[in-house]
């Protein structure tokens, strides 16, 4: 039996944050006496990720995603609980461990601003002690996959956001890590570039069998890449399983889109009318009765067009969080 690439049990991180009221006098007061407060950023999460798996890590801002990734990549000491990545304890920051993982943060760059990309890559080559022969073939491979071309010769400050991201990813993968922590790798990029990066991640995963733990606010990323998602909120795991199950579990409805030849039909007897635009209607119906309702609609009304679909994943996620809030 092989060990999972990432194994997390009861992992928690509590931050102590200074607290002060707004205003100047409060600011002065806090210079003398600091009030602090404990914030549970991550609260006893447990999960495993197998080799070669791409797992989406979802949650609203401040849910604890980044904190979790940082603990798993050895940046932060967990307050309690255990994590094993590739058999290592991340916070020990063992050289073998660090040589086999990578962390990409979409909002921060590691490339040096004023010098050509290739020089930053060369630095990483030296730090990771990648042999020159491997280095050249990796660069060639990355250049082809990411279409880097002449970007490598340009100083980073002259690159567009998307180009920079491609180069960042190249720099992060020079040493061919087998576990990738990607924190919003596509943030701020246009749709084409997002797809590009996505395809690349998927290709790297296929070729090298690397485990990928990815956070993103773009559901397109998640849908395209992840078979499995872990939803966290307020530092706790709310859901862990295939994306399709998430939809099934949290969204017991389907949306029927229907186009009629009249703008004044009353469809409320069939289900909730969530939207009407001219002669086009959207009704939300219970999954169980969807076939029956669809049949009735087609029989009763002069239907021009009809489609049945799952609600957009964004809405499902939103529902997950709101249902959690209602419970607590």
């Amino acid at each position: 039996m092989t060990m999972p690439a990432i194994q997390v049990s009861q992992l928690s991180k509590t931050y102590v944050v200074p607290e002060r009221e707004a205003g100047l006098s409060a600011a002065f007061k806090s210079l003398i006496h600091r009030k602090t407060r404990e914030v549970k950023a991550v609260d006893q999460i447990s999960f495993t990720v197998d080799e070669g798996e791409i797992v989406g890590f979802l949650g609203p801002n401040g849910a604890g995603k980044t904190t979790s990734l940082k603990m798993l990549s050895g940046l932060l000491y967990p307050t309690s609980g255990e994590a094993h990545v590739l058999g290592h304890i991340p916070s020990k920051r063992h050289r073998d461990f660090l040589s086999d993982i990578t962390l990409v943060m979409g909002q921060r760059n590691q490339l040096v601003w004023d010098i050509p990309v290739i020089d930053s890559l060369e630095r990483n080559r030296a730090v990771y002690r990648v042999p020159r022969s491997d280095y050249q073939s990796t660069i060639d491979e990355l250049t082809e996959l990411l279409d880097l071309g002449e970007l490598l010769q340009k100083p980073v400050r002259n690159l567009s956001l998307g180009e920079r991201m491609k180069c960042e990813i190249a720099a992060a993968l020079l040493h061919r890590p087998s576990v990738l922590f990607l924190d919003e790798p596509t943030i701020g990029l246009d749709v084409t570039m997002q797809r590009r990066i996505r395809e690349f991640i998927s290709a790297y995963n296929r070729e090298h069998g690397a485990a990928v733990l990815l956070t993103s606010h773009y559901m397109a990323d998640v849908e395209a890449l992840c078979d499995r998602v872990i939803v966290i909120h307020h530092g706790r795991v709310l859901f862990d399983g295939p994306l399709t199950d998430l939809v099934a579990r949290f969204s017991p409805h389907k949306t029927i889109q229907i186009e009629l030849d009249t703008e004044s039909a009353d469809l409320s007897e069939y289900g909730d009318v969530v939207e009407q635009e001219g002669a086009r209607y959207k009704i939300s119906v219970d999954k169980a009765v969807t076939p029956e309702v669809t049949g009735r609609l087609l029989a009763d009304l002069p239907v021009i067009d009809l489609t049945v679909e799952d609600p957009p994943i964004e809405n499902v996620i939103e529902q997950v969080f709101s249902s959690e809030n209602a419970e607590s």
């Binding site: 990549s73 940046l75 920051r93 073998d96 660090l98 993982i101 962390l103 921060r108 730090v127 002690r129």
Partner: peptide
């Protein structure tokens, strides 16, 4: 302050040296 130290810390080399 900016958090870019994160990248230094993920490198397999003594961080103090880096």
């Amino acid at each position: 302050r900016e958090g870019t130290l994160d990248y230094t810390l993920t490198k397999p080399e003594d961080a103090q040296f880096l």
